[in-house]
């Protein structure tokens, strides 16, 4: 590993969160570089320590969100690096690509065992953009390099997707809970399958799943859009709302890290061997 870990951000045609993601990584004390989907050789030669598939609309979500990007050659490299244990994070459209690649839940190598299906909400369909609250599954916090610093608190993050409902086949529904990493809850930490606590009808209120080893995490909420405290809306209640108010009062609002930073700081800690 390099003295400063290098995190590669993979940009597909239609990705639109790569620069915020890169900034989040840099502001967490790691190095980062954006690689286009056709820069396979450059990516391989730079030997990144971790990979992030950012949000957006790869290939304009044509056919099915993430389905076309999952077939790209660059994903061969990400797939083999993940199998070797390197950390991989997919955010929103990146999560859809990981699911369509069979990298999560990854029970059988390379097999597609879940789906991120269209949101299922009574009375509305299509794209949904709002803030949600999450808690981290205990096992995930122990084994996932992206979640080590998330603690036991409730994490507010924004979502923005049309296809974010985790689905598992009938025979895998019981097994799915072992892959849970992030779950939707209300501001007090109580889970519910009803809208708006569970905003898309996701099975088991799942907002993020991981592979058995924990190094691959696919999450629908956008941590890079809540990296700084100033990105939180004023109505956010609870611990993060208090922290936001405090940073406003102390004049440190612009420089105080927000809840989304926890995911990138966790990885930095992981590389420092602090967990």
């Amino acid at each position: 590993m390099k003295s400063v870990p290098l995190v590669a951000v993979i940009q597909f045609p239609g990705s639109n969160c790569e620069y915020e993601t890169k900034r989040g990584i840099l502001n967490s004390g790691m190095d980062s570089c954006i690689y286009r989907w056709n820069q396979c050789r450059e990516l391989r030669d730079s030997q990144p320590d971790a990979y992030v598939l950012p949000g957006g609309f790869s290939f304009q979500d044509r056919v099915r969100a993430g389905a076309v990007a999952a077939k790209e050659r660059i994903m061969d490299l990400v797939f083999s690096e993940a199998a070797g244990g390197k950390p991989v994070l997919g955010i929103c459209n990146g999560a859809q690509i990981l699911v369509e690649s069979g990298m999560v839940p990854g029970w059988e190598r390379g097999r597609i065992e879940s789906a991120l299906a269209a949101n299922h909400i009574s009375g509305r369909s299509g794209y949904l953009s709002r803030w949600v609250f999450l808690h981290v599954a205990a096992k995930a916090q122990q084994i996932c390099p992206w979640l080590g610093k998330t603690g036991n608190g409730i994490i507010p993050l924004p979502i923005a997707h049309a296809e974010g409902r985790f689905v598992f086949s009938e025979e895998n529904r019981e097994r799915a809970s072992s892959s849970a990493a992030l779950k939707y809850c209300d501001e007090k930490g109580i889970e519910s399958s009803d809208y708006p606590v569970n905003p898309n009808g996701s099975f088991l209120n799942l907002a993020g799943i991981m592979n058995d080893r924990g190094n691959v995490l696919a999450m629908m909420p956008h941590p890079e859009r809540a990296f700084w405290m100033w990105q939180l809306p004023p109505w956010i209640p609870g611990e993060w709302g208090d922290r936001r108010d405090q940073s406003l009062r102390s004049g440190s609002h612009a420089d105080t890290k927000g809840p989304g930073s926890l995911f990138f700081m966790s990885l930095a800690d992981h590389f420092r061997g602090e967990r």
Binding site: V63, R64, A67, V68, A70, K71, M75, F79, E100, S101, G102, G110, R111, I112, E113, S114, A115, A117, V167, F168, S169
Partner: peptide
């Protein structure tokens, strides 16, 4: 029918 990353494209049989 998309059963693996290198097999099929148009439908994810888990949800479709």
């Amino acid at each position: 029918v998309s059963t693996r990353r290198d097999h099929g494209l148009l439908a994810n049989p888990v949800s479709q």
